[in-house]
Protein backbone atom coordinates (compact mmCIF):
# COMPACT_ATOMS: atom_id res chain seq x y z
CA UNK A 1 0.00 0.00 0.00
CA UNK A 2 2.65 2.42 1.05
CA UNK A 3 4.33 1.78 -2.23
CA UNK A 4 1.70 3.82 -4.02
CA UNK A 5 3.35 6.90 -2.63
CA UNK A 6 6.83 5.76 -1.74
CA UNK A 7 7.90 3.41 -4.51
CA UNK A 8 10.77 4.87 -6.44
CA UNK A 9 10.61 2.15 -9.04
CA UNK A 10 7.62 0.73 -10.85
CA UNK A 11 4.78 3.12 -10.17
CA UNK A 12 5.94 6.29 -11.95
CA UNK A 13 6.86 4.30 -15.03
CA UNK A 14 3.51 2.57 -15.06
CA UNK A 15 1.83 5.94 -14.83
CA UNK A 16 3.98 7.26 -17.66
CA UNK A 17 3.61 4.24 -19.89
CA UNK A 18 0.41 4.94 -21.88
CA UNK A 19 1.25 8.56 -22.64
CA UNK A 20 4.88 7.73 -23.40
CA UNK A 21 4.01 5.05 -25.92
CA UNK A 22 1.57 7.32 -27.73
CA UNK A 23 4.06 10.14 -27.57
CA UNK A 24 7.01 8.09 -28.77
CA UNK A 25 5.17 6.71 -31.77
CA UNK A 26 3.17 9.72 -32.90
CA UNK A 27 5.29 12.63 -31.80
CA UNK A 28 8.91 11.70 -31.16
CA UNK A 29 9.26 9.48 -34.22
CA UNK A 30 7.78 12.04 -36.67
CA UNK A 31 9.74 14.79 -34.93
CA UNK A 32 13.02 12.92 -35.31
CA UNK A 33 12.23 12.45 -39.00
CA UNK A 34 11.59 16.18 -39.10
CA UNK A 35 14.91 16.87 -37.40
CA UNK A 36 16.75 14.68 -39.89
CA UNK A 37 14.89 16.39 -42.72
CA UNK A 38 16.19 19.76 -41.56
CA UNK A 39 19.71 18.68 -42.52
CA UNK A 40 18.71 17.82 -46.08
CA UNK A 41 18.90 20.01 -49.14
CA UNK A 42 16.00 20.91 -51.39
CA UNK A 43 15.59 21.92 -55.00
CA UNK A 44 12.41 23.04 -56.76
CA UNK A 45 13.07 20.67 -59.64
CA UNK A 46 14.26 17.72 -57.60
CA UNK A 47 12.39 17.82 -54.32
CA UNK A 48 14.25 16.81 -51.17
CA UNK A 49 17.92 15.96 -51.73
CA UNK A 50 19.06 13.41 -49.18
CA UNK A 51 22.55 14.78 -48.57
CA UNK A 52 23.66 16.10 -45.21
CA UNK A 53 24.04 19.88 -45.11
CA UNK A 54 24.14 22.70 -42.60
CA UNK A 55 22.77 25.02 -45.27
CA UNK A 56 19.31 25.52 -43.76
CA UNK A 57 20.63 26.41 -40.34
CA UNK A 58 23.36 28.61 -41.77
CA UNK A 59 20.76 30.54 -43.70
CA UNK A 60 18.47 30.82 -40.71
CA UNK A 61 20.97 31.62 -37.97
CA UNK A 62 23.61 33.65 -39.77
CA UNK A 63 21.58 35.83 -42.11
CA UNK A 64 20.67 39.25 -40.81
CA UNK A 65 17.13 39.09 -42.20
CA UNK A 66 16.29 35.75 -40.58
CA UNK A 67 17.97 36.78 -37.34
CA UNK A 68 15.72 39.83 -37.21
CA UNK A 69 12.72 37.53 -37.77
CA UNK A 70 13.89 35.23 -34.96
CA UNK A 71 14.22 38.31 -32.75
CA UNK A 72 10.74 39.49 -33.68
CA UNK A 73 9.32 36.05 -32.85
CA UNK A 74 10.97 35.99 -29.45
CA UNK A 75 9.82 39.54 -28.78
CA UNK A 76 6.23 38.91 -29.82
CA UNK A 77 5.95 35.75 -27.71
CA UNK A 78 7.46 37.44 -24.66
CA UNK A 79 5.30 40.55 -24.93
CA UNK A 80 2.19 38.43 -25.44
CA UNK A 81 3.02 36.26 -22.41
CA UNK A 82 3.58 39.33 -20.22
CA UNK A 83 0.46 41.16 -21.41
CA UNK A 84 -1.77 38.10 -20.95
CA UNK A 85 -0.40 37.73 -17.43
CA UNK A 86 -1.02 41.38 -16.54
CA UNK A 87 -4.51 41.25 -18.03
CA UNK A 88 -5.38 37.78 -16.81
CA UNK A 89 -4.08 37.78 -13.26
CA UNK A 90 -6.70 40.14 -11.78
CA UNK A 91 -9.40 38.16 -13.58
CA UNK A 92 -8.12 34.97 -11.97
CA UNK A 93 -8.09 36.77 -8.63
CA UNK A 94 -11.66 37.87 -9.21
CA UNK A 95 -12.70 34.26 -9.87
CA UNK A 96 -11.69 33.36 -6.33
CA UNK A 97 -14.06 35.91 -4.80
CA UNK A 98 -16.89 36.15 -7.35
CA UNK A 99 -20.33 34.61 -6.97
CA UNK A 100 -20.80 31.26 -8.74
CA UNK A 101 -22.95 32.86 -11.42
CA UNK A 102 -20.44 35.63 -12.13
CA UNK A 103 -17.68 33.03 -12.30
CA UNK A 104 -19.54 31.03 -14.92
CA UNK A 105 -20.14 34.12 -17.03
CA UNK A 106 -16.54 35.26 -16.89
CA UNK A 107 -15.21 31.83 -17.85
CA UNK A 108 -17.71 31.40 -20.68
CA UNK A 109 -17.10 34.87 -22.10
CA UNK A 110 -13.32 34.77 -22.09
CA UNK A 111 -13.43 31.35 -23.74
CA UNK A 112 -15.86 32.40 -26.48
CA UNK A 113 -13.30 33.71 -29.03
CA UNK A 114 -11.74 30.23 -29.08
CA UNK A 115 -14.97 28.82 -30.48
CA UNK A 116 -14.67 30.83 -33.68
CA UNK A 117 -12.36 29.69 -36.46
CA UNK A 118 -9.09 31.61 -36.26
CA UNK A 119 -9.46 33.22 -39.69
CA UNK A 120 -13.00 34.42 -39.08
CA UNK A 121 -12.04 35.77 -35.66
CA UNK A 122 -9.00 37.54 -37.05
CA UNK A 123 -11.12 39.18 -39.76
CA UNK A 124 -13.31 40.42 -36.93
CA UNK A 125 -10.31 42.11 -35.35
CA UNK A 126 -9.27 43.55 -38.70
CA UNK A 127 -12.67 45.24 -38.87
CA UNK A 128 -12.31 46.59 -35.33
CA UNK A 129 -8.74 47.83 -35.69
CA UNK A 130 -8.58 48.72 -39.38
CA UNK A 131 -9.14 51.79 -41.48
CA UNK A 132 -12.73 53.05 -41.01
CA UNK A 133 -12.88 50.46 -38.27
CA UNK A 134 -14.77 50.53 -35.01
CA UNK A 135 -11.94 52.04 -32.97
CA UNK A 136 -11.07 54.66 -35.54
CA UNK A 137 -14.69 55.72 -35.88
CA UNK A 138 -15.13 56.04 -32.13
CA UNK A 139 -11.91 58.02 -31.72
CA UNK A 140 -12.59 60.23 -34.73
CA UNK A 141 -16.01 61.03 -33.26
CA UNK A 142 -14.38 62.30 -30.07
CA UNK A 143 -11.79 64.27 -32.02
CA UNK A 144 -8.76 61.98 -32.21
CA UNK A 145 -8.26 60.98 -35.85
CA UNK A 146 -5.77 58.51 -37.31
CA UNK A 147 -6.04 55.75 -34.71
CA UNK A 148 -5.96 52.94 -37.27
CA UNK A 149 -3.47 50.53 -35.81
CA UNK A 150 -4.09 47.47 -37.92
CA UNK A 151 -0.83 46.06 -39.32
CA UNK A 152 1.29 46.87 -36.28
CA UNK A 153 2.87 44.67 -33.67
CA UNK A 154 0.32 45.99 -31.18
CA UNK A 155 -2.52 44.66 -33.34
CA UNK A 156 -0.95 41.19 -33.35
CA UNK A 157 -0.55 41.32 -29.58
CA UNK A 158 -4.22 42.32 -29.23
CA UNK A 159 -5.31 39.43 -31.45
CA UNK A 160 -3.17 36.92 -29.57
CA UNK A 161 -3.98 38.18 -26.08
CA UNK A 162 -7.65 37.89 -27.00
CA UNK A 163 -7.46 34.11 -27.38
CA UNK A 164 -4.62 33.33 -25.01
CA UNK A 165 -5.83 35.15 -21.89
CA UNK A 166 -8.05 32.23 -20.75
CA UNK A 167 -4.99 29.96 -20.61
CA UNK A 168 -3.38 32.26 -18.04
CA UNK A 169 -6.60 32.94 -16.16
CA UNK A 170 -7.46 29.29 -15.62
CA UNK A 171 -3.90 28.29 -14.92
CA UNK A 172 -3.50 30.99 -12.27
CA UNK A 173 -6.99 30.34 -10.88
CA UNK A 174 -6.12 26.67 -10.44
CA UNK A 175 -3.09 27.73 -8.46
CA UNK A 176 -4.93 30.34 -6.39
CA UNK A 177 -7.62 27.85 -5.62
CA UNK A 178 -5.19 25.53 -3.90
CA UNK A 179 -3.83 28.18 -1.54
CA UNK A 180 -4.90 27.42 2.01
CA UNK A 181 -7.20 30.35 2.89
CA UNK A 182 -5.71 30.35 6.39
CA UNK A 183 -2.36 31.57 5.07
CA UNK A 184 -3.40 34.99 3.72
CA UNK A 185 -5.75 35.38 6.66
CA UNK A 186 -2.89 34.77 9.04
CA UNK A 187 -0.79 37.36 7.24
CA UNK A 188 -3.63 39.85 7.43
CA UNK A 189 -4.23 39.21 11.10
CA UNK A 190 -0.55 39.90 11.72
CA UNK A 191 -1.17 43.38 10.34
CA UNK A 192 -0.18 43.08 6.68
CA UNK A 193 -2.08 45.43 4.38
CA UNK A 194 -4.19 43.81 1.61
CA UNK A 195 -1.64 44.88 -1.02
CA UNK A 196 1.17 43.39 1.02
CA UNK A 197 -0.75 40.15 1.45
CA UNK A 198 -1.24 40.10 -2.30
CA UNK A 199 2.36 40.77 -3.23
CA UNK A 200 4.07 38.79 -0.48
CA UNK A 201 1.72 35.87 0.05
CA UNK A 202 -0.80 35.30 -2.74
CA UNK A 203 1.43 36.20 -5.69
CA UNK A 204 4.33 33.94 -4.67
CA UNK A 205 2.01 31.06 -3.85
CA UNK A 206 0.41 31.29 -7.29
CA UNK A 207 3.78 31.20 -9.03
CA UNK A 208 3.32 27.65 -10.42
CA UNK A 209 0.13 28.75 -12.16
CA UNK A 210 1.74 31.93 -13.47
CA UNK A 211 4.68 30.05 -14.91
CA UNK A 212 2.57 27.30 -16.46
CA UNK A 213 0.22 29.85 -18.02
CA UNK A 214 3.00 32.02 -19.38
CA UNK A 215 4.84 29.06 -20.85
CA UNK A 216 1.70 27.89 -22.64
CA UNK A 217 1.05 31.37 -23.98
CA UNK A 218 4.67 31.81 -25.03
CA UNK A 219 4.62 28.53 -26.91
CA UNK A 220 1.28 29.08 -28.60
CA UNK A 221 2.13 32.67 -29.55
CA UNK A 222 5.35 31.59 -31.22
CA UNK A 223 3.59 28.96 -33.32
CA UNK A 224 0.53 30.76 -34.70
CA UNK A 225 0.72 32.00 -38.25
CA UNK A 226 -2.70 33.36 -39.18
CA UNK A 227 -2.90 36.12 -36.58
CA UNK A 228 0.53 37.67 -37.24
CA UNK A 229 -0.03 37.48 -41.00
CA UNK A 230 -3.46 39.15 -41.02
CA UNK A 231 -3.13 41.61 -38.14
CA UNK A 232 0.60 42.29 -38.41
CA UNK A 233 0.52 43.00 -42.12
CA UNK A 234 3.26 42.35 -44.61
CA UNK A 235 6.04 44.10 -42.72
CA UNK A 236 5.55 42.02 -39.63
CA UNK A 237 7.25 38.70 -40.23
CA UNK A 238 7.66 36.00 -37.62
CA UNK A 239 9.15 32.52 -37.95
CA UNK A 240 5.78 30.80 -38.18
CA UNK A 241 4.77 32.93 -41.20
CA UNK A 242 8.01 32.09 -42.98
CA UNK A 243 7.62 28.45 -42.04
CA UNK A 244 4.16 28.37 -43.58
CA UNK A 245 5.59 29.86 -46.78
CA UNK A 246 8.38 27.30 -46.90
CA UNK A 247 6.27 24.28 -45.97
CA UNK A 248 3.03 24.88 -47.83
CA UNK A 249 3.79 27.39 -50.61
CA UNK A 250 7.24 26.13 -51.57
CA UNK A 251 7.11 22.52 -50.26
CA UNK A 252 10.65 23.17 -49.00
CA UNK A 253 10.20 20.84 -46.05
CA UNK A 254 13.87 20.75 -45.05
CA UNK A 255 13.99 24.51 -44.54
CA UNK A 256 10.57 24.51 -42.89
CA UNK A 257 11.81 21.74 -40.60
CA UNK A 258 14.85 23.85 -39.67
CA UNK A 259 12.49 26.71 -38.79
CA UNK A 260 10.33 24.35 -36.71
CA UNK A 261 13.40 23.07 -34.84
CA UNK A 262 14.47 26.69 -34.24
CA UNK A 263 11.00 27.53 -32.90
CA UNK A 264 11.21 24.59 -30.53
CA UNK A 265 14.61 25.79 -29.36
CA UNK A 266 13.20 29.27 -28.77
CA UNK A 267 10.44 27.87 -26.58
CA UNK A 268 12.92 25.66 -24.73
CA UNK A 269 15.13 28.72 -24.14
CA UNK A 270 12.07 30.65 -22.96
CA UNK A 271 11.22 27.80 -20.62
CA UNK A 272 14.79 27.66 -19.34
CA UNK A 273 14.94 31.39 -18.69
CA UNK A 274 11.63 31.18 -16.89
CA UNK A 275 12.80 28.31 -14.71
CA UNK A 276 16.00 30.19 -13.91
CA UNK A 277 14.10 33.30 -12.92
CA UNK A 278 11.73 31.23 -10.80
CA UNK A 279 14.50 29.38 -9.04
CA UNK A 280 16.40 32.59 -8.33
CA UNK A 281 13.36 34.07 -6.70
CA UNK A 282 13.06 33.23 -3.05
CA UNK A 283 9.81 31.37 -3.63
CA UNK A 284 11.16 29.12 -6.33
CA UNK A 285 11.53 26.32 -3.82
CA UNK A 286 7.84 25.59 -4.00
CA UNK A 287 8.29 24.50 -7.61
CA UNK A 288 10.84 21.80 -7.03
Amino acid sequence: MRRFLTSRHATPWLLLLPASVLFAVFFVAPFITLGINSFYDYGRMTGIIHVFTWKNYEKLWLDEYYLSVIGATFRLSSITALVTLVIGYPVALYLTVASPRAKSWVIALILSPLLVSVIVRTFGWAIILGKNGLIERVFTAIGIPGTDFLHTEAAVVVGLVNVLTPFVVLSVATSLQSIDPAVPLAAASLGASPLRVLSRVILPLSLPGILAGMLIVFGLASATFVTPAVLGGAKFKVLSTLMYQQAVILQNWPFAAAIAVTLTLIVLIGQGLQNMAAERSRYGASLR
Binding site: F26, P30, L215, A223, A260
Partner: peptide, 24 residues
Protein backbone atom coordinates in the same frame (compact mmCIF):
# COMPACT_ATOMS: atom_id res chain seq x y z
CA UNK B 1 13.94 15.61 -19.38
CA UNK B 2 10.54 13.94 -19.64
CA UNK B 3 8.90 17.04 -18.25
CA UNK B 4 10.39 19.17 -21.03
CA UNK B 5 9.79 16.52 -23.67
CA UNK B 6 6.08 16.33 -22.95
CA UNK B 7 5.90 20.12 -23.36
CA UNK B 8 7.52 20.00 -26.81
CA UNK B 9 4.33 19.79 -28.96
CA UNK B 10 3.47 23.21 -27.58
CA UNK B 11 6.22 24.80 -29.62
CA UNK B 12 5.98 22.75 -32.79
CA UNK B 13 3.69 24.57 -35.17
CA UNK B 14 0.64 22.50 -36.07
CA UNK B 15 1.25 22.79 -39.81
CA UNK B 16 4.62 21.09 -39.60
CA UNK B 17 3.43 18.52 -37.06
CA UNK B 18 0.43 17.67 -39.24
CA UNK B 19 2.65 17.28 -42.31
CA UNK B 20 5.20 15.18 -40.41
CA UNK B 21 2.50 12.94 -38.99
CA UNK B 22 0.82 12.55 -42.38
CA UNK B 23 4.11 11.59 -44.00
CA UNK B 24 4.85 9.21 -41.14
Amino acid sequence: VLQSLFMAPLSVPGIIFGLALLQF
